[in-house]
Design a binder for these strands. Structure first.
Lengths: 194, 194
DNA sequence: CTTCTAAGTAATCATTGACTTACAACCGGT
DNA sequence: ACCGGTTGTAAGTCAATGATTACTTAGAAG
């Protein structure tokens, strides 16, 4: 049982651990997630998961930064793909929701943003949040009110995932809410949760 | 040292533990909060905090339900106080922000909404979230799009508290964001974080 | 003044989970 | 072929923490 797994170069191993970590941190949050669960999902021993990043905290920070980077990339791609500056929000919105294909990412983000009090993670959280806001302002060209409203809807979207509300889409109030929050992406979201 | 504290009737003791719990859960989240920290803030022994509610999980659920109840009450009061149905959001928004005076409440709510996966807490979280949405829809009379946008802004507000962003209000991007998210309540918020 | 119960504590248990250490196996270069 | 660094695991250590237990005491009621 569980004999030595296939050897991977460090960079690939890191990446596979980060993907597993996003899922587990997204489901359980920073404190409740165990490094053992992350290691199991990555198919390696717990010791290796820790040694690769040095500590659980460092692993979480790396995971969080990877998620923020992905959001930034997705928004930049959406901005570059937009011919004009009109109807920017729907494009950005779809890009955001598609990140949910990466299981755990969006909820990991939500967890990150609850950790402002933590001396090591708090600064990372604030920096990541402001980086995203700044992209909306300066690169997408949204005025403050629209950037904030978009961000607010993004937090609601992540909250809906965190609540696992899409599993109750048969409830009439829930389906109305999902429709209002996700608009043209509602079907996509329900598919991801089928 | 720490000889027996003043005795309180059970109901009062419960209440004081719940207030302490909201602060500690709001700061650290469900998993990272320790029952010992809650007990210390309430000025009692850890054993009593646990015994009064049976378990940490039961204590968290009681705390969460108390916070949701307070939000519901605050919204109902705001709705009753509104002469007409116009400009409902600013009234509700102020009521929401004022709940931050109860330290920890709003961030506890945010933590609650990340716990959808938990078999015991998840249902409580979804029920609380939908209860608030339903009040906005059916009692405040907001159409789905406006109720959702208001809810989204509420999540952003809680996120800003979770990030402890108001402590960095001197940053120009932060102050712009705070202004856009809090509107006429910005000064109130900054005062609460002074 | 005695009793009885509710409210409280200190001490300890059992579990869990992050991290360490010692060792095994795989490979590339000389 | 062999040797050193890299990749990996198994088996532990140690601290933290939720829960339990056995005990104490305040204070109301008779």
């Amino acid at each position: 049982m569980s004999l030595p797994r296939k050897r991977l170069p460090a960079a690939e191993r890191r990446e596979s651990i980060l993907a597993a970590a996003a899922e587990v941190f997204g489901t359980h949050g920073y404190a409740a997630a165990t490094t053992d669960a992350i290691a199991q999902r990555a198919g390696i021993s717990q010791a290796l998961a820790i040694r690769t990043f040095g500590s659980k905290e460092a692993l979480f920070i790396a995971t969080a930064e990877r998620v923020v980077d992905r959001v930034a990339e997705a928004f930049r791609a959406a901005i570059a793909g937009a011919g004009d500056r009109e109807r920017m929000e729907p494009r950005l919105g779809e890009a955001y929701v598609r990140l949910a294909e990466d299981r755990g990412s969006l909820v990991t983000l939500l967890h990150l943003f609850t950790l402002g009090h933590d001396p090591a993670i708090g600064p990372v959280a604030r920096e990541g949040f402001l980086r995203i806001y700044t992209i909306l302002r300066d690169e997408a060209g949204l005025p403050a009110a629209r950037a904030t409203a978009f961000l607010a809807n993004g937090m609601l979207v992540s909250t809906i995932f965190g609540l696992e509300l899409p599993t109750q889409a048969d409830d009439v109030a829930v389906s109305e809410l999902l429709q209002a929050a996700f608009r043209e992406n509602t079907a996509l979201v329900l598919e991801l949760f089928g």
